[in-house]
Computed example of a mutant assay.
Amino acid sequence: MEKRILLVEDEITIQKVVKMNLELEGYEVIVSANGKDALELAKNQYFDLIVLDIMLPEVNGFEICEQVRLNNKEIGIIIVSAKDNAEDRVLGLKMGADDYLAKPFNLEELLLRVEKLISRRTKTERATSEVYQFGDNRINFSSYEAHGNGKDLVLTKKEAQLLQLLIERKNEAVSREQILKTVWGYDVFPATRTIDNFLLSFRKYFEKDPKNPEFFKSVRGIGYKFTDK
């Protein structure tokens, strides 16, 4: 599964160099040069890691870090900043950053730190049990067997993959485009109701009241999210 990185950097030269090198390492990179826009991206899209400058237009990196961390305990955050005194480093870590790298930085060192944080999250995801239970429902991701609404089910491979993606990203909105790219391998969203139909099936399988879903919810203008309290 291709890992997604949000690169928040308003120095265009640095932005282009870092983006290119991250993409060469196999990551999907979304860039933002504005703090307010970065917050919207972090709120509405899924990312495995954020590479974050501090001095940004509208909203600074410390505020972004704090707000993102309040809603997402798992995402990796690396601050990359020209602000290199001890007070700023401590503040960045207090706001929830996992790492802090001062500018000018060694590009290879940044790539190694990114790889380390991505690997940590990947191991956490893999540690998820093959069998997942929510409510009175149960899914076995290795055998594609499931139990929902008192009935035994056999899922298709795509159904199991989509369910696993939504469950791994529990309580986070996942866009249709990202679902298609991750599960189907599409780079461009086709004019179909493919995902919508899959979610209708999931609600039929697992929701007591499909018209008022408890687990599989629509996020207007974005896609879907799985919620399991």
Rank of each mutant, 00 (worst) to 15 (best):
L41E: 07
L56Q: 02
V29L: 07
M1F: 08
V188L: 10
M1Y: 10
L93I: 10
E125R: 09
I77K: 02
K211F: 02
A191P: 04
L117A: 08
E159Y: 02
D196M: 09
R120N: 12
K204G: 12
D37C: 14
A160E: 04
K204P: 04
P190M: 07
I167W: 04
P104S: 15
C65E: 01
V51K: 00
T128S: 12
N44Q: 06
V29H: 05
I5T: 04
K94S: 12
K94I: 14
Y144A: 11
G223D: 00
V188E: 11
L155Y: 07
N85T: 10
I139N: 01
L52V: 05
E172H: 09
Q178C: 09
L52K: 03
L155P: 03
A82D: 09
S218G: 14
I54T: 03
A102W: 01
A127F: 11
F216P: 00
S129M: 05
I14A: 09
A102F: 05
N137I: 03
K19R: 12
H147R: 13
K157A: 14
N171L: 12
R69A: 09
F226H: 00
I195S: 03
S142G: 08
E214Q: 09
V80C: 06
F141D: 11
A86H: 13
N140C: 07
F189D: 14
E168G: 12
A42K: 05
M1Q: 11
N60F: 10
N106L: 15
E145D: 14
L107V: 11
A102D: 04
P213I: 05
E87Q: 14
K170T: 10
I75S: 00
L39E: 00
L200Y: 01
D98K: 08
F226A: 03
A33T: 13
Q164S: 11
A173E: 05
Y46R: 06
K229F: 09
K16D: 15
R69T: 04
I64Q: 04
N85I: 11
K16G: 10
S201F: 01
A97Q: 06
K116E: 10
N72V: 07
Q161R: 15
R4C: 07
E172C: 08
E23M: 03
V183T: 02
L162K: 00
L165A: 06
L110D: 12
Q161C: 12
R120Q: 13
D10F: 07
F47D: 12
L166C: 03
T156N: 08
T182V: 03
A160L: 09
I167V: 05
E168N: 14
T194R: 06
L155A: 06
F215L: 04
L166Q: 01
V18N: 03
I118N: 09
K94V: 15
K204R: 13
A127N: 15
D88G: 11
V183A: 01
